[in-house]
């Protein structure tokens, strides 16, 4: 059994038995390649009443290699307007790249992103949004982000 399968199996069991943190729900986890979760910011924030969906893509090297994580952009879900979130759903966050640690998990990523939205004070797109989106690869992991700041 691949390490990623065993590990994701374990994470899935944790989620179904212990539940997910508030504001985070598991939408779809039919296999060990792609998962979908929804994300809400609870309490007072600029995103009150908005629900977002996250797509996780795992390769066989997970959790040694980070998952590819992005906000879903379709008829039902749109990415949040945030200085670190591109309009195609790609996210510029160091935890998904250079700061990734194999002890992190799907839920840990969700909580970080929830936190990132909760602390947002300025609902704007990244300054380079149009340029990035025009040339972005399908998989956000192929992008070498220059993290906008260390704060998030």
């Amino acid at each position: 059994m691949a390490v990623s399968t065993r590990r994701l199996q374990k994470e899935l069991t944790e989620i179904t038995t212990a539940g997910t943190p508030c504001g985070i729900t598991l939408l779809k986890a039919d296999d060990f390649q792609t998962w979908f979760l929804t994300l809400e910011v609870l309490g007072e924030s600029l995103y009150q009443g908005e629900v977002f969906a996250l797509m996780f893509r795992f390769d066989s090297q997970y959790p040694i290699s980070s998952p590819a994580v992005q906000f879903v952009n379709d008829e039902t879900y749109q990415p949040p307007i945030h200085p670190h979130v591109y309009s195609n759903g790609h996210i510029c966050a160091s935890i998904l790249g250079s700061e990734w640690s194999p002890v992190l998990s799907v839920i840990a990523v969700c909580i970080t992103l929830q936190s990132m939205l909760a602390s947002c004070k300025d609902k704007t797109r990244p300054p380079d949004n149009d340029r990035y989106v025009a040339h972005a690869p399908d998989n956000p992991k192929k992008t070498r982000f220059v993290y906008h700041d260390d704060e998030v």
């Binding site: 508030c22 309490g43 840990a108 936190s115 998030v152």
Partner: peptide, 22 residues
């Protein structure tokens, strides 16, 4: 986690706390 603060500091400790769970 229902009372999680939205400060950046809590992001880091939030991860370590949830990891304690995972």
């Amino acid at each position: 986690r229902s009372t999680r603060q939205s400060t950046l500091d809590s992001t880091k400790s939030g991860i370590s706390r949830i990891l304690e769970r995972v």
